[in-house]
Write a protein that binds this DNA or RNA. Sequence first.
DNA 1: CTGTTAGCGCTTTCAT
DNA 2: ATGAAAGCGCTAACAG
Lengths: 379, 379
Amino acid sequence: MGSFLGALLGVKTALPGHATLESCAFKAKNVMKTTAKPTQRKRDPSGPSRATLVEVAEAAGVSASTVSRILNGTARVSSDKRKAVEKAIADLNFTPNVLAQSLKRGQSMTIGVVTPALDSPFFNETLKGIEAGLAGSGYAALIVSGHWNPEEEAERVALLMARKVDGIIMVSGNIPDDQIVRFSEQVPIVATGHGCEADNARAIRVDNVWGGYRATRHLIELGHRQIAHIAGMPNLQDANDRLVGYKHALEDARIPFDEALVVQGDFRESGGMLCANQLLDRGVPFSAVFAANDQTAYGARLAFYRRGIRVPEDISLIGFDDLPGSLYTTPPLTTMRQPVYEIGHMAAGAVLGLITNKPFKLEQPQVELMIRETTRRLR
Amino acid sequence: MGSFLGALLGVKTALPGHATLESCAFKAKNVMKTTAKPTQRKRDPSGPSRATLVEVAEAAGVSASTVSRILNGTARVSSDKRKAVEKAIADLNFTPNVLAQSLKRGQSMTIGVVTPALDSPFFNETLKGIEAGLAGSGYAALIVSGHWNPEEEAERVALLMARKVDGIIMVSGNIPDDQIVRFSEQVPIVATGHGCEADNARAIRVDNVWGGYRATRHLIELGHRQIAHIAGMPNLQDANDRLVGYKHALEDARIPFDEALVVQGDFRESGGMLCANQLLDRGVPFSAVFAANDQTAYGARLAFYRRGIRVPEDISLIGFDDLPGSLYTTPPLTTMRQPVYEIGHMAAGAVLGLITNKPFKLEQPQVELMIRETTRRLR
DNA sequence: CTGTTAGCGCTTTCAT
DNA sequence: ATGAAAGCGCTAACAG
């Protein structure tokens, strides 16, 4: 087998069953410009699939209605016709056009989902739950991102409604509750991280105040008294609630609240890192940090690492959310677990219930303290 | 303000502007069972929106075609009629029914996206790129998950075709290339992490062999000679290619390949952790590890931490992908960066090009070594 | 410039 | 049990 260096010297070498390696030598130029060949979009009747119900009917020698009835089990059909139709369907590789069905039936069999971010591990967990909750229902999810922007979120909702989604799930986001309620006059909405309730709107939200309280209290129970807090995204109720919980825990422990120990983060790693540095630079001593979410905690963790501050030996750190990755940070992160997947699942069940007018259950999901290895008793 | 402990003792307290805290005391029972009230689904003409184009036409005293023409800018319309129509549209809060438009035009203005996992930071970066690439095009993305299962992926494609998506983006996945090509006879497909090429199919894939080579070579350049590899998901070409690159780098450095230094991972943290332990337990010494992807590296990192092995002091570790989180591990992970976002963006551009028959560029995205803090020169 | 007409592919009375 | 006919809401010739 030719050597790599050989390739670099211009000697052609090939790998068994793999792309040639010579590209390595010409990395910078290894550009395959492809231009679309003018390919005709075919609407070729003999081609695979793309048959219509009427064509099936003709092939089977029956009327369109009969085919439709068989497809939907709407009425009894004699078994010979049924067979003929089934054969025709198979022969023509027919699949009903969902668009046409939707138009006719007045429902699109799709649920709109608006998430604040497509690349957040937190919201993706929710999406996964939604997907699971929708599985087998015949409903598909149309996922769009509002990019944390209230106007864009509203715009997205409009887009979803134009596409005639049968229901909407709002995953957190910055859109005001009353606007959600207004939207819900048009289409059923279930919102997580919101507090709205209306005829056609439901909300699922954990008790963030309690969560913030519990997290802080955990630190207090470990003997910490100088506890910093890196807050979450401003104006986001979830974040504010956690701060409120933090204050209450301090109060209950008769620890005076110190403004200098609270900094405004943004729910992201970069913010967490910045804030931790800020905190450190202020010179006000602290032995523990409650980060408003796990991503913030990750950032703070790195800031400490950079300054040679050990976690948990020197500083205890607790997060909020329990992202999948928090099990694998070094050391694994102590955090308040939110059952995000379950929330998504429940939200899906709720929209479906709202749409089909069937009863469903909506319980408040519980946050839970996950003690791992970033918090320790103050010596 | 009432104290928390007060609440626990049954004294009612309320927070200004926030949920009462008493729920804390009754955590286990804090269950709000909600049953759907039988809400009538309204098709109320006077209600907000839900007007049809014909209704607009009537209200404006023109024909439906005129309204349509104004909506789509298909032809000139006298300004008085235009004004009347615009007023009617505003009055009735009219939005065109995309479903009806789609049925008529024969295109749904939606792109199907099948991803192997909804909760993978790697694929979500791609999704984000796709979303950005689609932004402003009028196309929406219908995202479905194939759960790493080839059958399910095929099923998902069928579902997307039934919904008449105008194009499909396959984000990696286990579905065989020739099946993708077959599907592409029905609808344009762009696949990342695949090698298929056909009239209506394009593929975007980085040079994983080169990536594996470069990663390993980085370790070699640092003086390492006993280099372990935690491989990726079996049967996945990307993973195999990286292994091939690894072998070649060893070969070029005249380091004999040692089977005992290669273990089969699964691209996930848990697998990485398991594999690292396996490696350690084998007793074959090594000073560096090339993990097939970042998630694997995270797992390995934790395994080392658990055994008191320091990274990079005792063992150097390099990953592959450069997930957003890799900037914030402790220490930040040295890795091969894949421009995942760009790949998604490019894929979106490519489907759009395929659909509209416009030229587009498809360049092979380059992987790049990101030297951070988990690798160091062997003393 | 604008209205009329004819569907897109499917479902659903209404007869038979 | 089955077919004919009438649309769902919109667009696109085709005539004026």
